[in-house]
């Protein structure tokens, strides 16, 4: 088991390297350089050249990359020049991190709760009305871009039935930690609930077909023939076998959190990392964009690692390989 984990962690090193190269290339794609917006247009070209030289921008790409990665490892991600002008990027991200984490965790838990209950209902009543409705519901929510639903939910629960606050995070540093925490939950709940409600499709489809597969297995028929109630067969055998593959998806669900948060946070006015990314893109604040991408890349690799470890843990057959 430990050897599997160790080997998997070792694979992460070249992957991290690849991610950093990818992000560096994306950063190169963006027009302008770190002086963008800070330069006096009347500066003479020689001064600009000197500044560019001091920042190492006239060096070949691979050297720039080495400098950049060196600074990243020392925790220096640069300074924002648009979103929060003058703040270091680390400070901006730190201030935005908690809202996204709280929302992401609630959303992940609710997604699994919704998807699992939907799949159980569907599989227990295969081809009945409730199964049909759930299948259609999941087809619709997966086909239509989710930001449309986010708007409908916002109009519904913020404007028509105003039970949730309109925008903000509810975090107040002057308050005690617990007060701030619970007030944040009130703000995080609606976006998290909305994300969860409309992103059940992949877990639902997967679990439903797993459950149907397991139901058709011989051991289920044997148990039923012995006189075990369908409820008990479900609880003791089918669920356990069908849930194994789902467990490994938990890690991968981290991968999509920021991408989904982009839309949810922007629409619900909930200033987390996703909204920060959109703001930074709109105002072309490249140091912030690069930093968010680094964070996301790291999270994605971590999620992949988590998934592989979980699946090796719950399913011994994978470990042998």
């Amino acid at each position: 088991m430990w050897r599997t984990i160790l080997r998997r962690v070792l694979i992460m090193i070249p992957q991290l390297f690849l991610v950093s190269i990818l992000i560096f290339m994306l950063a190169q794609l963006m027009p302008g350089d770190p002086f963008y917006g800070n330069l006096n247009p009347n500066s003479d070209p020689a001064t600009i050249a000197r500044m560019r030289h001091a920042a190492g921008l006239d060096q070949p790409l691979y050297q720039q990359y080495i400098h950049w990665i060196d600074r990243v490892f020392h925790g220096d991600l640069g300074t924002s020049y648009a979103v929060n002008k003058g703040w270091t990027v680390t400070r901006i991200i730190a201030s935005r991190l908690w809202p996204t984490i709280s929302m992401g965790i609630i959303a992940a838990i609710l997604t699994y709760v919704f998807a699992i209950s939907e799949a159980l209902l569907s599989a227990r009543h295969e081809n009945k009305t409730i199964d049909r409705i759930l299948m259609v519901w999941n087809t619709i929510t997966s086909a239509v871009p989710s930001f449309v639903f986010y708007f409908l939910m916002m109009i519904l629960f913020v404007y028509l039935i105003p039970i949730f606050p309109a925008s903000g995070t509810g975090i107040d540093d002057s308050q005690s930690f617990t007060t701030s925490f619970f007030s944040n939950l009130r703000y995080a709940f609606l976006p998290a609930f909305t994300i969860a409600l409309f992103s059940t499709n992949s877990i639902f489809q997967y679990l439903r077909s797993n459950l149907l597969d397991q139901q058709a297995q011989d051991y289920v028929r044997t148990a039923r023939a012995k006189g075990v109630t369908i409820k008990d067969v479900f609880r003791k055998h089918i669920l356990r076998n069908a849930f194994l593959p789902i467990a490994s998806g938990i890690g991968y669900s981290i991968t999509g959190v920021l991408g989904g948060a982009m839309f949810a946070e922007t629409i619900f006015g909930y200033p987390g990392i996703g909204a920060l990314f959109v703001q930074a893109l709109t105002s072309r604040d490249y140091t912030v964009i690069t930093a968010v991408m680094l964070l996301q890349g790291f999270l994605a690799l971590l999620g992949g690692l988590l998934s592989d470890v979980i699946s090796a843990w719950v399913d011994p057959r994978i470990r042998v390989k």
């Binding site: 990818l22 794609l29 991408g259 893109l281 996301q296």
Partner: peptide, 19 residues
């Protein structure tokens, strides 16, 4: 493919499109 699949495509596309 596995590497590309865990990358946040929607964010990468947003960057490419915005540039």
């Amino acid at each position: 493919i596995d590497f590309w699949l865990i990358m946040p495509l929607i964010m990468i596309l947003a960057i490419i499109f915005s540039t």
